[in-house]
Amino acid sequence: MDPTGNVGLLKCIYNIWKKPSKKAIIIYRWAKKMHDKNYKHIPIFLTNKLVVNYGSFISLNANIGRNLDFRHINGIVIGDGVTIANNVVIYQQVTLGGKNLGDFQKGNYPSIEDGVTIFAGAKIIGNITVGANSIVGANSVVINDVPANSVVAGIPAKVVKKLSY
């Protein structure tokens, strides 16, 4: 091992970069940072790269917290006004968005709180809140608020279990 620790750092960077889901989050964060600094073309190029390479769209107007984990990046759609807190896990084919065109101006987008897990194919639509440490079951359609520490499933999603931590 290199006494300066550079080999370990390079190995860490390589391990992050070889995982498509980690790479997608890094690309999004670069695009978001440039978008927030009013760059025009580079953020659009980077978000288009996400669409082409991973089939996923993440709006530059979304607010995403720390430690977002995409288990499988394919087909994820995160709309304009979505707010995602910290330590959220999202699986493939998940849609977080508004119900109607123009919802961004009205603020009609979901808010996902800390520690939520959203399983494959789930759709969370409209001005709703998914409470902290909740689980959204696969292929569920969430159109109502989800209480904290709950498991929801179905179409439309209903609470099927309360979690105790």
Rank of each mutant, 00 (worst) to 15 (best):
V159H: 08
N67M: 04
I76T: 03
I26F: 15
Y91Q: 08
I124T: 00
N108D: 14
N108Y: 14
N63G: 08
E113R: 15
K23L: 15
A157T: 05
T83L: 02
L60R: 10
I125F: 07
D69K: 12
N133K: 12
V88Q: 01
I64D: 02
P110K: 00
V82M: 03
P43M: 08
A157C: 07
K23P: 04
A120Q: 12
A153K: 05
Y14I: 08
K11Q: 15
G75R: 05
R29W: 08
G97H: 01
G97D: 04
N133S: 11
K49L: 14
Y165Q: 10
K33R: 13
G107Y: 10
Q92P: 02
V82H: 03
I78M: 02
R29S: 06
N15G: 08
S134K: 07
H41V: 07
D145M: 05
N87A: 00
I64M: 11
G137T: 09
N67Y: 13
G115H: 14
P20A: 10
G102V: 09
I125V: 15
I76H: 01
K18H: 11
N127K: 15
G79R: 00
Q105D: 14
Y28C: 05
S150T: 11
A122I: 02
D114H: 14
I64T: 06
G131V: 09
K106L: 14
I76D: 00
I124D: 00
A31Y: 03
I112F: 12
W30V: 14
C12K: 15
V88G: 00
N144F: 04
K49Q: 11
N149A: 03
L101H: 10
N15K: 14
A153I: 03
K22M: 12
N6K: 15
S21M: 08
R66N: 13
D36K: 12
A138S: 14
D145V: 07
K123I: 13
P20E: 14
I27G: 07
Y14N: 14
A148F: 06
G81V: 04
I44G: 01
K49Y: 13
D69V: 11
K40W: 06
G98P: 01
D114E: 15
V142G: 00
G98H: 04
S140W: 02
A157F: 01
D69P: 00
I124M: 01
G137W: 04
K22E: 13
G75E: 06
W30L: 15
I73Y: 01
A148Y: 05
I27S: 07
F57M: 12
S150L: 06
I58Q: 00
Q105G: 10
K18V: 15
S164R: 11
I27P: 06
P20M: 06
N74M: 08
S56Q: 02
V159N: 07
P110G: 03
I64A: 06
A31R: 05
V94C: 01
A138K: 09
N63W: 04
F70G: 02
R66G: 03
I125N: 02
F45C: 08
V51P: 01
V151K: 04
K158G: 02
D114L: 11
W30D: 03
N48K: 13
H72C: 05
D80F: 02
N6H: 12
C12T: 13
G81C: 03
I27C: 11
I90M: 05
I135D: 02
Y109I: 07
G137N: 09
K19T: 11
I90S: 00
I90K: 00
I73S: 01
L101K: 12
W17Q: 13
S164I: 09
R66F: 08
N15C: 09
V94K: 01
